[in-house]
Write a protein that binds this DNA or RNA. Sequence first.
DNA 1: ATTTACTACTTTGCTATACATGGTAATTAT
DNA 2: ATAATTACCATGTATAGCAAAGTAGTAAAT
Lengths: 132, 132
Amino acid sequence: MKIIDDNIIINSDNIKSQMRKGILEYCILSILERNGEAYASAIISELKDAKMIVVEGTLYPLLTRQKNQGLLKYRWEESKQGPPRKYYSLTEKGKLTLKELDNVWNDIVITINKIKTNENYFNNVKIHCDDM
Amino acid sequence: MKIIDDNIIINSDNIKSQMRKGILEYCILSILERNGEAYASAIISELKDAKMIVVEGTLYPLLTRQKNQGLLKYRWEESKQGPPRKYYSLTEKGKLTLKELDNVWNDIVITINKIKTNENYFNNVKIHCDDM
DNA sequence: ATTTACTACTTTGCTATACATGGTAATTAT
DNA sequence: ATAATTACCATGTATAGCAAAGTAGTAAAT
């Protein structure tokens, strides 16, 4: 929440949480791609480091959803400091979906740029790797 | 909808529409900033050019919402080729909110980069695209 | 004059995401 | 025991975007 003056109040927290919708899924897959596997609390820590604050009640249903969609699989592992952990990793479908999400994300970044500048970005791009 | 093989089906349309949530609002404000004012059909055309396909049933409620939040104002203008048009433009609050959204968007781009690369991007920015 | 086509604005019902909140269960320390 | 910590899970709410259908103004065709 940001207050500009007495009359203008901008709820930037809500703005941010709305903008993140759908991107969170992309973040989870990306984190699992880089780490190989991870359990929920570790994922939350990493998201927090990247300033993408997420709470348990958001992450757990998301992981379950992605698992049910066949994007993730998990294995149980005992922990010496608490209850057992579910270590999630990408399935083959998850890897392919992540590639799709990479493309979608790149498209969106290009789109925003186009809207901000009203120019075409097909030659001198560099806004984002399109040669991947 | 993208079919990878017989077993793997990726609904990339849904992915894209989910990722765009909250970003659309940013796009509208940006378009109005550049154009000064515009009516709904013109905004839809511009979004379509930028590959951000939007339908009437999405845009009109969004414009009404932003107007009710005090971000936009509009004036009626007669048209010689159809019914009168609502020409929308940014209010002072809309301009300030857009600046906030610019910051939020930049933060998100940086966040995604951090998650993809696990590096810090505060000095040498490059908003996106490293050697991935 | 009526119908048809086009344009523009509006409304309703649905789905999906994220959040707030509270609950369950396993391990360890006291 | 029991309290603290860690980790996983479930329910209800708010809201964005979409599909689909409706309303209304203008202009051209019949």
